[in-house]
């Protein structure tokens, strides 16, 4: 699979751009967090496309961003369950 470039993204409509980025991010996230992959991908897709392209080129940055997303998600789930009970 060829790398995703800014010009490939620019040629697609905005909603399709996020889908294209998600298709690249998802398998990488799936390898780290299988049960949360769809959710984490969705969270990361709210980041600017230009930054997402940089993350795809930098595994270390991507890993730290994924861990950040997991931490945010877990903190959110804990606060949700605290509020409900």
């Amino acid at each position: 699979q060829e790398p995703l470039t800014a010009s490939m993204l620019a040629a697609a409509p905005p909603q399709e751009q996020k889908q294209m980025l998600g298709e690249r991010l998802y398998p990488l996230i799936l390898a780290m967090h299988p049960s949360l992959a769809g959710k984490i991908t969705g969270m990361l897709l709210e980041i600017d496309n230009s930054e997402l392209l940089l993350l795809l080129e930098s595994p270390e940055s991507l890993h730290s961003k994924i861990e950040e997303a997991v931490a945010v998600l877990q903190a959110h789930q804990i606060s949700e369950s605290t509020h409900k009970s």
């Binding site: 049960s35 969705g42 969270m43």
Partner: peptide, 21 residues
């Protein structure tokens, strides 16, 4: 600094991968 990531973000549905059950 507070994370900018949103825990309420919509879940991503991949086209090219089977959905985990």
């Amino acid at each position: 600094r507070k994370s900018t990531l949103n825990p309420n973000a919509k879940e991503f549905n991949p086209r090219s991968f089977a959905q985990p059950k």
